[in-house]
Design a protein around this nucleic acid. Structure first.
Lengths: 129, 129
DNA sequence: AGCAGTTAATTGCAAATTGCAAGTAACTGC
DNA sequence: GCAGTTACTTGCAATTTGCAATTAACTGCT
């Protein structure tokens, strides 16, 4: 088996980028965690307290998968009671467009739904130290 | 119970448009059917023959849900052997941006994945390099 | 007329995933 | 020393998924 075949084999269902993306984020919870990260949430308990009330075992699983797929990183922000924070990587931040498209579709087509805040705000000021 | 409460109650998890959108399209298969519709596929068997090989009971279920949510319509395109076609509504076509965002994210971040075709092709673009 | 083939499903069942409750471990603050 | 917080894990029932087989209604071939 060649390297190319190895690469092909790792596509779970097909080489279609939509299918591959869905293999990573195609479920009811993953993008809600990403949404929370865009909203500035960082810790396990912050995610747990979001209005959708994600079950704790699902949250633990999704965080693991997001780390495995390079969308977030997990790092301790304090040792003594060791506490972890989860941060979006560049790859994860680029899911902002997916989130934004869903948010806009939802706001337009699901009457009564209302965004608490928008991800990927157009802020042109990031070069400040 | 007031009308407002009725409206609130119908949100499955929260009024967040991202969560509401995920309640409709947040699974591994639904958006693949929508992708196929963007690719010009219209019939049950065309969806079945896509490379991901969606199980037939899942396909039947997802088509029902897409109809129920106003994303597609089902109509006979011939009577005698009565045959059905499924067509995107305006609401469904507006999922093109979600699909496009996923496609671009996948192409960029999943090495080897390659789009067979792009939904929502922007006719006016890509003159610069 | 008989039979294979196509389309659009439904049914049955095992396996996997989800959702809920409870429990755990390490620590803090009173 | 005891309640509270954080970040989980475990157990288990319920739901969903995936696969195979089957069905119903027709067409086209011989």
């Amino acid at each position: 088996m060649t390297e190319q075949q190895n690469r092909v084999d790792k596509f779970k269902r097909s080489p279609c980028p939509v299918a591959c993306t869905l293999d990573i984020i195609g479920d009811k919870w993953t993008l809600l965690v990403v949404r929370d990260l865009f909203a500035g949430k960082k810790t396990y308990s912050e995610f747990q307290h979001s209005p959708e009330k994600i079950p704790t075992n699902i949250l633990a699983d999704r965080l693991k998968r997001l780390v495995k797929n390079g969308i977030i990183v997990k790092e301790p922000y304090q040792s003594h009671p060791v506490r972890y924070q989860y941060l979006l990587t560049a790859k994860g931040r680029e899911l902002g467009l997916v989130l934004k498209a869903m948010l806009q579709w939802g706001e337009k087509h699901i009457p009564g739904s209302k965004a608490l805040m928008h991800p990927v705000q157009d802020k042109r000021e990031e070069l400040k130290s």
